[in-house]
Amino acid sequence: MTKIQKSVADLKPGEKGTVCCFKDEIMSLKFLEMGCLPGSEVELSHKAPFGDPICIRVGGYALSMRLKEAATIMLIE
């Protein structure tokens, strides 16, 4: 059985991960341009009320995104 790969949407506040790849090609363009690249370390800073959107720390700054968008950033196991 293969484990389901984790995405940024699965992170808990304070938890870190390393970006492996993107599930949505068009959305990935925006992430790439924002400096969220394969190999970048990301950390979930906090979630908005109701748990969505979320805010991650990447490349030394705070980046917010909707949960649906975060779910397309896959993490290295």
């Binding site: 959305m27 925006k30 924002m34 805010c55 700054y61 705070a62 917010s64 995104m65 968008e69």
Partner: peptide, 11 residues
């Protein structure tokens, strides 16, 4: 069309 909320939260 997709909506983005991929947005920088400035310090």
């Amino acid at each position: 069309e997709r909506g983005y909320f991929i947005m920088e939260l400035p310090s």
